[in-house]
Design a binder for these strands. Sequence first.
DNA 1: ATCGTAGGTAGACGCTTGTTTACTTGCAAC
DNA 2: GTTGCAAGTAAACAAGCGTCTACCTACGAT
Lengths: 213, 213
Amino acid sequence: MGMRVEGERTAPSAAHGTRRAADRRPKRDREATERRILDAARDLFGEHGYDGVTVRMIAAQAEANVALVNRYFGSKAALFEEVLTGESVIRGVIAGDPAGLPRRLAEHFVRQIDQRPTTAMSRILDRSAGQPEVKEILLHYLEDRIVQPIIAQLDGPDARARALLASTIIMGGGPVRRLFGLTDLRAADPAEVTDRLTAMFTAALAPPVRREM
Amino acid sequence: MGMRVEGERTAPSAAHGTRRAADRRPKRDREATERRILDAARDLFGEHGYDGVTVRMIAAQAEANVALVNRYFGSKAALFEEVLTGESVIRGVIAGDPAGLPRRLAEHFVRQIDQRPTTAMSRILDRSAGQPEVKEILLHYLEDRIVQPIIAQLDGPDARARALLASTIIMGGGPVRRLFGLTDLRAADPAEVTDRLTAMFTAALAPPVRREM
DNA sequence: ATCGTAGGTAGACGCTTGTTTACTTGCAAC
DNA sequence: GTTGCAAGTAAACAAGCGTCTACCTACGAT
């Protein structure tokens, strides 16, 4: 329980002041500790969201002292921001030819259903929008990483509104997955689900058809 | 600020033990107090979600004492459940002919964008799934009020998966609205947005087309 | 008038949160 | 060795949380 594990540090981290020897791995390695904290934070924030995670949980999973979280990262919110800016999987999904964007988004969605350890990102989004202290952080992330890149690929009017409709699907996936579990969605044919989602994203993003009234 | 408002009670509440006179409105009216607490809870839970609301906030908005919240409703979670079971707007939206279901859902979505004091429900859903104590409450609500009614209207295989995809849109609306505000979505033509959402819901819910492989 | 009781209140309980303050300890240079 | 300093630790901080207990007080019945 309260025992401290000595082994299994991850990397030499050869930048401890004036370190010269190659394999020297000190028992006290700030860089490695920071990395363990960051990894634990990414893992836990992805699983439970901002409010669902305490700094003590992070410290425990990182096998580090509670005080180090704030000492190295300033505050819980700053650590959250650091985790967020480190994530950039969705960027590669959005980039590409505009015509294939709906299908790429759909495949990304399905991919998150299939593989168990999902990219922490989309799971962070839903449950973390509570406190005003992180709302701004989240807003910036979504704006820069999702909405604006999508808008850049859209032609025609109301590009922003269309991008927000697509974001609705993206952000709704988290709560649904978390509440209902993945088994129900996994039960269906993946190709079928992908086609459906592609159609949904297309409906959200496609240029407006001319309407007579 | 700390002053107590005497007037503006809402109803006579003619069931206070052996009350006989019609218009007698006591300064101490448990029924009215319960109603004020319930209204405040519905309002605040809808605005900030379960975790974002404290019983002290509820008591303050209801102009009631903090202890009364637990005395009358048992606990914060129980009050939350009461609020949830009292909401049933979405039920009327889902009921009707199956062919028009996507459009009814879309119109419901747009309606929530347009009118400012939205039905508290959909705004409660997103931010409230944190603690296990409410997860089950939420799950039951969504299952009984949304997923199962939708499934009942669907033909063909994978009805549950299709209903969950539609739920994704429904549940994604909350976070998007809360984070990005409504102005961006309101800026677009409502009829256009409704058409888009109808297409999105249709793509999620329609019976599968036969696929050759 | 008075009295019982239900409605309402103030305050504290125990707990958890994020954060900070002293303190100890390992490690490397001298 | 001894010393200096960064890394790490334990314990407390103030604030906020949901909840509960002991106490007032208004009001209908007597």
